[in-house]
């Protein structure tokens, strides 16, 4: 069953001297129990997409200027604020990229956890306190009872992140958006946290949107991936398919720049060449064109739509049978993806 549906979502920021085109027509769907990875260059619009779904865009600068977000039957983009507030946390929860923005610096960690639990779960203070201890224990905070009285700044970076995760998990939401939930965690605790998220999907059918730069985590956790660039979804498909056969030149570059532990060659890491896109100008052609080795004339004039990589394939948007789609006029072949550059003669289209 489709839980969440995002259609043609468009977000703009109005700053003092420019309009930032942060999200430019993003569409995807999310099924119960499914984990969707969201990856892409820093600044490409992953967090803003999530904040728009939650209706938590910074005000007044941020605005949804187009598209809809639907959760079950509710059109979130049109919901009155008080109904949205009820949904938030209980039905759709988010782990924010930066823990300090959502933890209150003047309340102790214990106070924040118990308040949240009491507000959403009808618990007495005592029950909430016991549950808070259990939750902190679950996310690997040692001797949690003795640390409930600590303030967020007295926790380490990773401990703060785990407090946020504990809060989101506490409410057993239907949709969990986790924005870089494990960046501040060592690999062993990361594995433990990811297991908790897996249990949530298995036990409650929670659908998860996992934003992460760690492609190892994407590979291990997600069934499907959306690759974003400059506010667009430029490639989507099952994780296995997309990692094995990347078609969009940005995805090709991204996968090629992963440092690997078993990599003993010790060559220089290869970043994707060129400047990041200027999001203050409305995109005209393909947003990746200025940095793309596959670029042809057409790319500069026309922005390609997200289409099946095998033309004519019927489009399945969710689940393990999701159609592999890319937004590119001249997608890379497997051989080119391995090589990291187009193999056709310059100027000649594929």
């Amino acid at each position: 069953m489709v839980l969440l549906s995002v259609a043609d979502l468009e977000v703009r920021f109005h700053t003092a001297d420019a309009t930032v085109h942060a999200v430019n027509g993003v569409s995807f769907e999310l099924e119960e129990g499914e984990t969707l990875g969201l990856v892409g260059e820093s600044g490409c619009g992953k967090s803003v997409t999530s904040l728009a779904i939650m209706r938590l865009l910074p005000q007044p600068a941020g605005r949804i200027t187009g598209g809809t977000v639907t959760f079950r039957d509710a059109i979130l983009t049109e919901l009155p604020e008080d109904e949205m507030r009820d949904l938030r946390g209980k039905e759709i929860a988010m782990v924010f990229q930066d823990p300090m923005t959502s933890l209150n610096p003047v309340l102790t960690v214990g106070e924040q956890l118990t308040e949240t639990l009491m507000a959403h779960r009808q618990m007495t203070r005592q029950q909430a306190r016991a549950r808070a201890v259990a939750l902190l224990e679950m996310v690997g905070i040692p001797r949690p009872a003795t640390r409930l009285g600590a303030y967020p700044h007295q926790f380490s970076g990773g401990m703060r992140q785990r407090v946020m995760i504990a809060m989101a998990l506490a409410l057993e939401p239907k949709v969990l958006i986790a924005d870089e939930p494990t960046t501040a965690l060592d690999v062993t605790i990361q594995a433990q946290i990811l297991d908790l998220v897996r249990n949530l999907t298995a036990d409650f059918g929670t659908a998860v949107i996992l934003i992460t730069h760690d492609l190892g985590v994407v590979a291990g956790m997600t069934g499907r991936v959306n690759v974003m660039y400059a506010g667009f979804v430029v490639e989507t498909g099952t994780t296995a398919e997309l990692f094995a056969h990347p078609r969009h030149p940005y995805t090709v570059g991204l996968l090629r720049s992963i440092p690997r532990l078993d990599d003993t060659r010790h060559e220089d890491l290869v970043p994707i060449e060129g400047q990041p896109p200027d999001m203050t100008v409305a995109p005209r052609g393909c947003p990746f064109a200025p940095r793309c080795a596959w670029r042809e004339e057409r790319c500069v004039a026309e922005n390609p739509a997200l289409e099946p990589v095998v033309p004519g394939t019927p489009i399945v948007t969710t689940g393990p049978g999701a159609t592999h789609r890319a937004a590119c006029w001249y997608p890379a072949t497997d051989e080119e993806a391995r090589h990291g550059a187009p193999l056709r003669a310059a100027g000649g289209a594929a």
């Binding site: 062993t188 594995a191 985590v217 992963i258």
Partner: peptide
């Protein structure tokens, strides 16, 4: 060794063996 064993691999086909640290995480206060 446990730390190195827990690194997730970016190849979705690889299923690694991971040393799971059992036992409670001790507190730096004690």
């Amino acid at each position: 060794i446990a730390l190195l064993s827990a690194v997730p691999d970016p190849d979705p086909r690889v299923r690694k063996k991971r040393i799971v640290l059992t036992g409670d995480v001790p507190s730096p206060a004690a």
